[in-house]
């Protein structure tokens, strides 16, 4: 266990009462932050402080606090989930910050993710994209034995790499164009790598891309900021898979 250093920080936090409010950055100071705290625990401390002062606490989404539910969604100094690669902001610890540092905390910024309050945004656009085709059409019951259809280990691993997506939306938040392509591509690739995903492969790609386009996300311009901030380090290779599947399907190819 490393030493028990304490930090004093200046936070610039986006405050916005509701969707209609234009919002603004507010500045707060927190003192004596342990380096072993998580970033969200640091915000808990701030919120205790605010509550004691009679000021409404800062609203932010969070749930599992172990990097898997995809709920937490803070842009820390311009980087979704903050400076540590492959880490959600709930698992980002304060040892990555310096005493006296100023930290700007903003919500995900995208037209398709309207702000609900403070740092909380509405990501239901992602759900609608999955509803358009991000599944295998199989009803409960009547499935063949799990071992009836062997899946090469390599394919299962590649599918898992893509399936690791937690749907947090950092890819959109980081993209200079607020594009959702990494999210959509992750699901398309996951199912495209498995035999179970083959029958609907082409239709799925077309349907999901159409749904994505409807939501008002931007378009990918291959800058790969999404990959850099993805807490599950999903590769932009998945986007290539999506491009290929969509083009083939759109051109009516087999």
């Amino acid at each position: 266990m490393s030493e028990n250093k304490r930090l004093n920080l200046t936070l610039h936090i986006w405050r916005q009462k509701n969707a209609a409010d234009p919002g603004r950055l507010a500045t707060y100071r927190v003192q004596g932050v342990s380096v072993h705290m998580s970033f969200l625990e640091m915000l808990d401390v701030l919120n205790e402080q605010l509550t004691a002062q009679g000021e409404e606490p800062v609203a932010f989404d969070h749930d599992c606090r172990e990097g898997i539910c995809g709920m937490c969604s803070l842009t820390v100094n311009g980087i979704p989930h903050g400076p540590q690669r492959g880490t959600t902001v709930c698992q980002l610890h304060m040892r990555h910050f310096a005493d006296g540092q100023e930290i700007t905390i903003e919500p995900w910024r995208a037209k398709a993710f309207p702000v609900v309050r403070d740092l909380v945004v509405d990501r239901s656009a992602f759900d609608r994209i999955i509803q358009a085709g991000g599944f295998v059409s199989v009803n409960t019951g009547g499935s063949p034995d799990g071992n009836a259809l062997p899946v090469p280990k390599k394919d299962a691993e590649a599918a898992m790499d893509a399936a690791a997506c937690i749907g947090c939306g950092a890819c959109v938040a980081a993209c200079k164009n607020a594009s959702a392509m990494l999210f959509v591509a992750a699901k398309i690739s996951h199912l495209a790598k498995l035999p179970q995903g083959q029958p609907e492969r082409r239709e799925r790609a077309l349907a999901m891309v159409a749904a994505m386009d409807q939501e008002g996300f931007g378009f990918c311009s291959n800058q790969y900021e999404c990959e850099a901030v993805c807490p599950k380090e999903i590769s932009v290779r998945t986007i290539a898979v999506m491009n290929r599947d969509t083009l083939r399907a759109g051109l009516g190819g087999a």
Partner: peptide
């Protein structure tokens, strides 16, 4: 039955080299 159902949905369970 659960395993069968989940495999059919495309859950990427770990596999052996033989694909099982």
């Amino acid at each position: 039955n659960i395993i069968d159902q989940c495999v059919a949905q495309g859950v990427p369970f770990a596999r052996e080299y033989g694909g099982y």
